[in-house]
Computed example of a mutant assay.
Amino acid sequence: MELIPAAVEAFAEKYTTPEDTVLYKLNRETHLKVELPHMLSGHVQGQFLRMISQMIRPHRILELGTFTGYAAICLAAGLEKDGMLHTIDINEELETLCTQYFEASGYADRIKMHIGKAAEVLTNLDEVFDLVFIDADKAGYVHYYDLVWEKLRPGGIILADNVLYHGQVLQPESEQGGQAKAMVRFCEKVLADDRAEQVLLTIRDGVLMIRKK
């Protein structure tokens, strides 16, 4: 399902601050060489992540799901001078590509990449986070939310990607795939959590923005 008409997306990109050279090259290389390039955050969402981080000025950021590192670079732009971004991905084959672009971005000393299962790595991270971006396996979102919550400072922000899941969440439950059902369960969990307040943003494939009260 086309959630955002191509003409609207093109208009949004036209009036969004352009990608810098590093992000442009990473975007292009991902589409040329990596399977499932649509998983990349891309121009408009990447700039949104960058601006949210710049507004918060976080000391600690957590990203679940690195892919090729585009979102991590965008998020790192808002870090305080002593800040650190921890990003976790299970796909070790993309580590070299990520590291290459982290170096090129100038944020390599502020980005720590972890290879492994998100839940296991997260359990061993002794940090308090100001900003969290969840973009990993959809079936794990509910569990990641619980794991992250105790590590998120009061007033901290969680951004959860793909909550509209290509529009499948709008279909009758009997027609939804497993990933879409997982997104609905996650959204329902957040809605019922009186410790949080949230807004669902219709950027790209849907971003649920959650604030810890």
Rank of each mutant, 00 (worst) to 15 (best):
I4K: 04
A7P: 08
E9F: 09
A12C: 12
E13A: 15
K14C: 10
T16I: 04
P18Q: 03
D20Q: 01
T21K: 02
V22G: 00
V22N: 00
L23Y: 01
L23E: 00
K25I: 03
K25D: 06
L26P: 00
L26D: 00
N27V: 01
N27R: 01
N27Q: 01
T30I: 01
T30C: 00
H31F: 02
L32Q: 04
K33E: 15
V34F: 06
L36W: 12
H43L: 05
F48D: 01
F48N: 00
F48R: 00
R50M: 07
I52G: 00
M55G: 06
I56N: 07
I61Q: 07
L62N: 13
T68E: 14
G69H: 08
C74S: 09
L75W: 04
A77W: 12
G78R: 05
L79H: 01
E80H: 13
E80S: 13
K81W: 05
D82Y: 05
M84F: 07
H86T: 06
H86N: 03
T87K: 01
T87Y: 07
I90W: 07
L94A: 02
L94K: 04
L94C: 00
L94P: 02
T96Q: 08
C98F: 07
C98V: 09
C98Y: 05
C98R: 00
T99L: 13
Q100I: 08
F102C: 02
S105Y: 10
Y107I: 12
A108H: 13
A108Q: 14
R110L: 11
I111V: 14
K112P: 10
K112W: 11
M113R: 15
M113I: 14
I115Y: 13
I115T: 15
A118E: 09
A119I: 14
A119V: 14
A119L: 14
L122W: 10
T123P: 08
T123Q: 15
N124Q: 13
N124W: 09
D126W: 10
D126L: 13
E127H: 11
D135G: 15
A136Q: 12
A136Y: 12
K138S: 04
K138R: 11
K138L: 07
A139E: 13
G140T: 14
H143T: 14
Y144I: 03
Y145C: 05
D146E: 11
L147V: 01
E150A: 05
K151I: 01
K151E: 03
G155W: 05
A160S: 10
N162K: 04
V163G: 03
V163W: 04
L164S: 07
Y165V: 03
H166I: 07
Q168E: 14
Q171L: 13
P172H: 01
S174A: 13
E175R: 10
G178A: 08
G178V: 11
A180Y: 05
M183Y: 08
M183I: 10
R185Q: 15
R185G: 12
F186T: 08
C187Y: 11
C187V: 12
E188K: 09
A192D: 04
D193V: 04
D193R: 03
E197S: 10
E197P: 06
Q198N: 14
Q198V: 09
R204S: 06
R204H: 05
D205R: 05
G206T: 05
V207K: 00
V207D: 01
L208G: 02
M209V: 05
M209E: 02
R211V: 03
K213M: 02
